[in-house]
Design a binder for these strands. Structure first.
Length: 765
DNA sequence: AAAAAGTGGCTTTTT
DNA sequence: GCCACTTTTT
């Protein structure tokens, strides 16, 4: 209570906290910005602050709202708060933005276009609907990729713009066409009574524009907390503004250096401008790091110092954990060898510390494959996070489509899926008839019933469709009668889906049955939590990769995005190569590059004791052998980070201070433009063939082997060539042979092209 | 209509 | 290299 500050040595909620942490915990009223550096005990501070509000300020748990980005983070937060307080914390609203919005829309949903019994479309459903839309608009998929269109639409939605509003912006003709698709896509969603992920935020934000609704929820949530504030997009930002307008008790926690979701519409300015939004805001910096040793932290600081988009006047992270080990870097000749080397290091580590927790981190999911192969070869168990998700497997999606159609009969996408799974003799023709028979504002099942009554279906289709329709009639009763898992079991039996898999009697079908059994136990678990069908469906489509991280796993493989918020004593970051990390698509713009750098910062700061980086000179990407160049981020590491200078190509390469005199590498990515930076790297690459590779170099020395060395006339990767049409360039890779021999060439004037040897008129240059 | 065989296209990152 | 999509065969 107000008055003399509690004695930190006696109050349990302040025990073992440093000064700024204590300040943050005790701050109750008014806007608060907590800049929480990596490993600064953020979660402890957040949970204790909530506990403080409840215990010391007498705040009712039901008037506290906390937003996170993953379900796992939400659950952890709730549990930890519960352990600190004496009253039940169940009434606290702790959830992801998306779950929060779902909850609101299910209460207030009669005011949105989709009502309250909507389904949530996952990306696959979205794509399926978008394809229909594009076909209807006669937009060729060649120019209008469904995925691309959806991305553009998602950008608009994240900025809270509906089609009509988006149209007011100055747009190129292509985007205008996409807006037509947006319009029709929204209508399609409405017909399906469906929301996509972005709609959840968009509709809720619209709802809160209504002063009455805003007052209602604004009054209710007296204390609002947003975690990972740097990752909020415009819609989330506005949502929070609406809710906080009444009480101004808004606490946001974040770290602009860990903003890595710009591609999903996150706007780093939200956190950079918080103090402008709330001039009375108190700002607290948590800079004491309790996770990593000094060398790791120094490396992180040096790397991130190259970014310009940062909070002004923020201090640097400190640690008391000692200098620790030097960061090491391994350059392997080839991707497979890189993976094998990492596995070997892990085995050595295991020998000394059998219980050591290790993570292998990478930029993109495809990089896990070689690691997995190498791990399997050594029989090392590992846990893979992300990749092909459980709920995206074919058989699981099939089963879900039944459940969704039971839950929401307007869902045509699900209808299309389950109507012929297992095969019931319904092809495109029959499906077209059914869809044509759907009455205005009716459901696909009604359409089917009409068709059957009219005797339009013959033979197998007629028999099977009769049974199919009956299934859904009986489902209503089943849904009441038995629990969730009972319903799932019933659907598996009655639909004949399980039977058809059993009949297949293949190894693959067996695996699918096992997956369905796993799904069944997921349903049973949700049932025991008292979830209803629609809530269960929400839960599984809003489940994130990061939710399945098992902290108990001894060896985890995951993307850096998935690793955010986690820590491991031993961390490997693989694939430290240009075009892999930083990713090829991100390096073109300064913002993209800065985000990649933040991603690297996140990767580094996951490590507690030892950080190991690795790269490969050569690797197969998309089936073709590619040469790689060192990631520019390697150069941004402190000079001593690389234990010894290494050779990459013909250059002597060392981090921190550029390379030996005369090299094309110089320091300072922060300064030069992207173009000059690229030019530098390109010229480095071009020099490769000019100098003969030194021999006796333990790391191999040679820049590369020819990708496919069989044709005597073939150009090796790295060869300078001239094309009549495109001028001079450097061979990056070759594929195919004989007539089909094709080179990938990076031309000096810009752009990579694939050119067939027999047409290209290529000559050595 | 369903299964098998062939072709092209392309991969960040995810709630 | 893999997967989604298309064409061919049954």
């Amino acid at each position: 209570m107000p008055g003399a500050p509690p004695d930190p040595s006696t109050h349990p909620l302040l025990r073992n906290l440093n000064a700024p942490q204590r300040e943050a915990v005790c701050h109750a009223h008014g806007p608060l910005l907590i800049l929480a550096g990596a490993g600064s005990g953020k979660t402890t501070v957040i949970t204790r602050r909530i506990a403080w509000l409840i215990e010391e300020e007498g705040v009712h748990p039901g008037s506290i709202l906390a937003m996170t980005f993953t379900n796992k983070a939400a659950e952890e937060m709730r549990e930890r708060v519960q352990r600190l307080v004496s009253v039940p914390a169940a009434q606290m609203w702790v959830s992801t933005f998306h779950s929060f919005c779902t909850r609101i829309l299910r209460r207030e949903g009669e005011r949105t276009p989709v009502g309250r019994d909507f389904v949530i479309f996952d990306p696959a459903d979205q794509k399926s609907l978008m394809k229909q839309v594009l076909a209807e608009l006669k937009l060729p998929e060649k120019q209008f990729h469904p995925k691309k269109a959806l991305e553009v639409i998602s950008d608009f939605k994240n900025r809270c713009l509906l089609p009509e509003e988006a149209r007011e912006e100055a747009l190129d003709p292509w985007t205008r066409k996409v807006l037509d698709a947006y319009d029709l896509y929204q209508k399609g969603l409405k017909n399906h009574r469906a929301c996509d992920f972005d709609d959840l935020l968009l509709y809720t934000e619209r709802l809160f524009r209504d002063p009455v609704v805003q007052a209602q929820y604004g009054e209710r949530f007296k204390f609002i907390l947003v975690d990972e504030y740097q990752d909020t997009n415009r819609a989330q930002y506005l949502l929070v503004q609406h809710l906080a307008r009444r009480h101004h008790n808004l606490c946001v926690v974040g770290d602009e250096d860990q903003s890595i979701y710009g591609w999903r519409g996150a706007d780093i300015r939200n956190i950079l401008d918080f103090q402008q939004d709330f001039p009375e805001a108190v700002r607290i910096e948590l800079l004491q790091n309790y996770r990593s040793t000094k060398k790791i932290l120094d490396a992180a600081s040096e790397v991130i110092a190259n970014n310009s988009q940062r909070v002004e006047g923020k201090g640097a992270l400190k640690t008391d954990l000692g200098d620790g080990e030097t960061i090491t870097f391994k350059l392997a000749d080839e991707g497979r060898l890189e993976a094998e080397w990492v596995v070997q290091r892990i085995q050595e580590l295991r020998y000394r510390e059998p219980e050591a927790k290790v993570a292998v981190l990478y930029r993109a999911n495809w990089q896990s494959r070689q690691m997995e192969e190498a791990l399997r070869a050594q029989n090392l168990p590992y846990r893979l996070v992300g990749g092909v998700k459980f709920y995206e497997r074919q058989e699981v999606k099939d089963l879900i489509s039944y459940l969704r159609l039971i839950s929401n009969p307007f869902d045509l996408v699900s209808f299309r899926r389950c109507v012929n799974a297992p095969t019931r003799g319904v092809g495109p023709t029959t499906l077209g008839k059914i869809e044509g028979a759907i009455p205005e504002g009716g459901t696909p099942l009604e359409g089917l019933a009409i068709l059957l009554r009219a005797g339009e279906l013959k033979g197998r289709a007629q028999r099977e469709m009769g049974k199919f329709l009956e299934l859904f009639h009986r489902a209503a009763a089943e849904r009441e009668g038995q629990g969730l898992s009972g319903l799932v079991k019933w659907v598996l039996q009655e639909s004949g889906y399980l039977q058809s898999l059993e009949d297949e009697a293949t190894l693959e079908a067996e695996g699918r049955i096992r997956n369905l059994e796993e799904f069944l136990s997921a349903a049973a678990e949700s049932e025991s939590l008292g979830l209803r069908l629609s809530e269960f469906l929400d839960r599984i489509t809003l489940a994130a990769d990061a939710d399945q991280v098992e902290e108990s796993a001894h060896l985890s493989l995951m993307t850096i995005h998935c690793a955010k918020g986690l820590e491991f004593p031993f961390v490997f970051v693989i694939g430290m190569e240009e075009d892999v990390f930083p990713n090829r698509n991100a390096r073109e713009t300064p913002e993209g590059l800065e985000e990649e750098r933040r991603l690297f910062y996140v990767a580094i700061t996951r490590a507690q004791r030892r950080l190991t980086l690795s790269a490969a000179r050569r690797r197969r990407i998309m089936g073709t052998e590619m040469l790689s160049m060192p990631s520019r981020f390697l150069r941004e590491l402190p000079a001593e980070a690389l234990t010894a200078p290494i050779r990459w190509g013909t250059e002597l390469y060392q981090s921190g201070e550029g390379v030996r005199p005369g090299s094309s590498f110089t320091r300072g990515a922060g300064g030069g433009s992207v173009a000059t930076e690229l030019q530098r790297i390109r010229s480095f690459f071009d020099r490769v063939k000019e100098v003969p590779a030194p021999s006796g170099e333990p790391d191999g020395g040679r820049f590369s082997e020819p990708a496919e060395a069989k044709d005597p006339a073939a150009f090796e990767a790295g060869t300078r060539v001239k094309s009549a049409r495109f001028g001079a360039g450097t061979v990056l890779a070759s594929s195919g042979r004989g007539e089909g021999l094709t080179y990938t060439i990076r031309f000096d004037q810009g752009g990579d092209r694939r050119i067939m040897a027999r047409f290209g008129g290529l000559e050595r240059f």
